[in-house]
């Protein structure tokens, strides 16, 4: 079961990468970033799982899953949110200048 969730996480990560390298719309690029992030977060959360263990609640009865990996995604989510927000703000600025969000047309800096 745990392998399925690892597999899922990696699959989601790869879907994010695929979105990045195929979509020409800037918004979709940012969506791709979010998907990648989701994949990594899922991976981290899943890594705390211990088979046949209960939730880490007091009073402890038997084993419980590792709660530590669940705290990392909280930080990572905040970071990811700020990245995405910043990216969207930049897209607005870029759209004001170029009048488009097509990656092929946004090539002012090259060479």
């Amino acid at each position: 079961m745990i392998h399925v969730s690892y597999g899922c996480a990696i699959a989601i990560f790869c879907i994010g990468l695929y979105t990045l390298i195929t979509k020409r719309n800037l918004f979709k690029t940012v969506i791709g970033l979010s998907i990648m992030e989701g994949g990594v977060l899922l991976f981290m959360v899943a890594s705390g799982f211990i088979p046949e263990a209960g939730p880490p609640l007091l009073p402890m009865v038997g084993g419980s899953v590792n709660p530590l990996p669940h705290t990392f995604p909280l930080t990572a989510i905040v970071i990811g949110a700020s990245d995405v927000a910043l990216a969207l703000a930049y897209i607005i600025k870029i759209h004001r200048h170029y009048g488009t969000v097509d990656v092929d047309k946004i090539r002012g800096l090259r060479g």
Partner: peptide
């Protein structure tokens, strides 16, 4: 070329 997608493709 300035194309972000091409750049990202290289990265991946």
């Amino acid at each position: 070329s300035g194309n972000l997608v091409a750049y990202l493709f290289t990265l991946v």
